[in-house]
C-alpha cells in the first residue's frame, strides 16, 4: 500500500525521524517493533485509528527526583474504550514517596511495596502501544517520565511516538471559539464543560478512561460535519523540556 505523502506534513517528518532513530541507534526488539509499525496514512479517517489512552501517577514533575507511582491505560479501538483490556499497575519504587502526593492519588508507600518493577510495567505498556496513537491529558509528565525511562534503561534518546493531547485540543477549541478565556484545563473541569460524568476516584486508570472519553467528545466537536481525515488532525509533536 503506497501512501501519498505530503513531504512537509509533520506525520511524514515523524516517519523519517523514526527511520533515522532505528538506523543510528542500537535498538532492542520491542522498541524496534514499536517504531517500525506504520503511522497512519494522511487519508485515513481519524476515527478509524487505534489509540491507547494512558495516564501516569507520579510524585512530582521531575523524573530525576520524583517517582513514577502507577501506570494506567486502556485501548480505544473503533471508537470504543475497552474496559476488558484496561490495565493499571503500581510501581515498586526505592525512592521515598512524599507524603503529600499520597493525599492526591491515594497511593501510600505500603502499596508500592507490592508494585512491580518499572521496566516490566513500562515495557508492557510500550508493547500495548504498538500501532496506536497515545492519548494523554497534558502530555508533559508522561513524556518526561517515558524519556527518562528510555535513557536510564536503554540509554536511548526520546522515542518518536505519535501523541494526541486532550488539554491542547481543548485549549485550541477555546481559542477558535474566542471564548471568555477560561484558564481551568484540569481534566475534571474540561470534562464538566463537555457534560461528561464526574468520576469520583482519582487514579491512573480512571484518568486514562476519563481522558479517552474526553478525546472522543473533543474529536466529535472538532470535526463536526467536516472532513475527518488524518491530514486535518493536529497531533502533539512537542518535546518536553
Amino acid at each position: 500500500m503506497r501512501r501519498i505523502f505530503n513531504h512537509f506534513h509533520p506525520l511524514n517528518k515523524l516517519q523519517r525521524e523514526r527511520e533515522r532513530y532505528l538506523s543510528t541507534h542500537q535498538v532492542p526488539d520491542n522498541i524496534r517493533v514499536l517504531l517500525e509499525a506504520p503511522l497512519p496514512d494522511l487519508d485515513d479517517d481519524i476515527y478509524s485509528l487505534d489509540y491507547l489512552s494512558l495516564d501516569f501517577e507520579t510524585s512530582g514533575f521531575n523524573p530525576k527526583t520524583d517517582s513514577l507511582l502507577s501506570v494506567g491505560y486502556l485501548p480505544l479501538i473503533n471508537q470504543q474504550l475497552l474496559l476488558s483490556e484496561a490495565v493499571e499497575t503500581l510501581i515498586h519504587t526505592a525512592k521515598n514517596v512524599k507524603a503529600e502526593t499520597a493525599v492526591i492519588n491515594h497511593i501510600v508507600p505500603e502499596m508500592l511495596e507490592k508494585g512491580e518493577a518499572w521496566n516490566v510495567v513500562l515495557d508492557a505498556m510500550l508493547t500495548e502501544a504498538v500501532g496506536k496513537v497515545l492519548i494523554v491529558h497534558g502530555s508533559i509528565v508522561e513524556k518526561r517520565f517515558l524519556n527518562h525511562y528510555m535513557a536510564k534503561r536503554y540509554k536511548l534518546p526520546p522515542l518518536p511516538l505519535l501523541w494526541v493531547d486532550t488539554l491542547q485540543m481543548e485549549k485550541s477549541l477555546h481559542i477558535y471559539k474566542d471564548n471568555n478565556g477560561t484558564d481551568d484545563f484540569r481534566l475534571g473541569s474540561v470534562r464538566e464543560r463537555h457534560h461528561l460524568p464526574e468520576y469520583s476516584a482519582h487514579g491512573a486508570l480512571v484518568d486514562s478512561l476519563a481522558t479517552g472519553e474526553l478525546y472522543l467528545a473533543l474529536l466529535k466537536q472538532h470535526f463536526e460535519g467536516a472532513d475527518s481525515s488524518v491530514r486535518h488532525m493536529k497531533f502533539d509533536y512537542t518535546r518536553p523540556l
Partner: peptide, 13 residues
C-alpha cells in the same frame, strides 16, 4: 462491568 465498552455519540449521531 468488566466487559463494557464505552463510546461517545455527538448530537445527531
Amino acid at each position: 462491568a468488566c466487559c463494557i465498552k464505552i463510546t461517545y455519540l455527538a448530537k445527531g449521531e
